[in-house]
């Protein structure tokens, strides 16, 4: 999986959990919280959906890695690729 594909996975999840948010022009290097009306409960949903839809575990200590799309891609892409390799 490429980093761009990984970002799309995260955007798809946000569209699922917050259908009323506009995700079309998200800036990848800006915190998601600053661009969308997301709170810690919503980040929990992103984590849960990653687990449910993709079998990816994000421990609580790593939640801050999901701050922006860029940091999501940085953190999650290796996890996706590791999983594929197994």
């Amino acid at each position: 999986m490429t980093k761009e594909e990984c970002k799309q996975v995260v955007i798809d999840i946000i569209n699922d959990i917050a259908p009323d948010e506009d995700t079309t022009d998200l800036k990848p290097d800006v915190r998601l919280r600053d661009q969308l009306d997301l709170d810690s409960m919503d980040f929990l949903d992103i984590v849960m959906e990653l687990r449910k839809q993709h079998g990816i575990e994000v421990p609580e200590a790593d939640y801050q890695q999901l701050a922006s799309l860029d940091s999501c891609a940085e953190y999650l892409t290796p996890k996706f690729n590791e999983k594929k390799a197994v």
């Binding site: 959990i17 917050a18 009323d20 009306d37 709170d39 409960m41 919503d42 949903d45």
Partner: peptide, 13 residues
């Protein structure tokens, strides 16, 4: 569509 409101959060959750 009202942002940051408890009702909006509740519905989303």
């Amino acid at each position: 569509g009202t942002k940051r409101a408890p009702l909006t959060k509740l519905l989303r959750q």
